[in-house]
Write a protein that binds this DNA or RNA. Sequence first.
DNA 1: TATTGTTATACTCTATAACTATA
DNA 2: TATAGTTATAGAGTATAACAATA
Lengths: 173, 173
Amino acid sequence: MDEARRSTTLAPVIDGESVDLGDDFGWALGVLLRGYRDHVKDAVGEFPHGTRGYETMAEVLRGTQPSQLALATHLGIDRTVMTYLVDDLENDGLVERRPNPADRRQRQIVATDRGRELVESACRRVVEAQAELLGTLDGDERAALRRLLNKAAAGTGEDVDDPCAVADEEARP
Amino acid sequence: MDEARRSTTLAPVIDGESVDLGDDFGWALGVLLRGYRDHVKDAVGEFPHGTRGYETMAEVLRGTQPSQLALATHLGIDRTVMTYLVDDLENDGLVERRPNPADRRQRQIVATDRGRELVESACRRVVEAQAELLGTLDGDERAALRRLLNKAAAGTGEDVDDPCAVADEEARP
DNA sequence: TATTGTTATACTCTATAACTATA
DNA sequence: TATAGTTATAGAGTATAACAATA
């Protein structure tokens, strides 16, 4: 056999033992994230920076991140990028920057009425787009996927606000 | 109340009805994908272009993509980017380009012995890193997450090779 | 004429460092 | 001294268009 050859199996044999390449996980994550951004693109077209701007706005509305930096780390965005992002959101009249009275180095990012309205009108379309993206899953499977994703994300060391906790809070206002 | 205010609930009330923002999905996907790349970074340090180079090599070993273009679309990479990526893999002696006899416009990407060895040694570390990433999930939950991710990815219109099918093929050679 | 792969170019996103103001 | 935010710069990643070879 010549030097370069083609393997026809998913699991290459190592030391006579077949080993799963085990890489479908990262690949599936990538495919899904690209699909997600593709599907919600139209739903969030009004927001600067697309899905990123929308996700930032959604997080601002949740109101759990006290500062611009907390917002950035929660969303996995560099703090220098967050500056430009908030600039554009502010220019569009979707948020305001307010100095935190408790620590005047920090800026609280607060949604304007217009910002909230825009998110509220967009979020339904986003939910629809998500349902379309997960069209091959039935209701139980979607719920299971959501739960497992959130549980797994909670294990990455990133700060996670448990959506169930907020849902509970919502259930008894 | 002043113009800009802070919402304290995850689910903003629309027309008197509470609506889930429904965006945790995209957020969790992003967190997991970043965590995945962070965790496997060390395991795939030998490959040019990091995780992307490794995933390309893994796909080459699977041997299901007949051309450079097929490889690119499967991995969600632009074909112009794939050119540079394959260039670097070839320079490192991990793959070879071969004209496809059936269609001489196409190039088959074939792993060299060295390329296969490198993937085989890396894939175990990748599997370990994945297990670490999903540390908060038990065995059943990990299996369920894998299954749901692949099923959902299959619904995005991207071409998907069913890992179970290949695993089956592996089971009876 | 359409497709695969390549190259060149420009654009976007991201990372790094320096600066300010506050603590 | 350390942190939050800003700004400027450079780098990586990505997209667009033009081209050659082949169908």
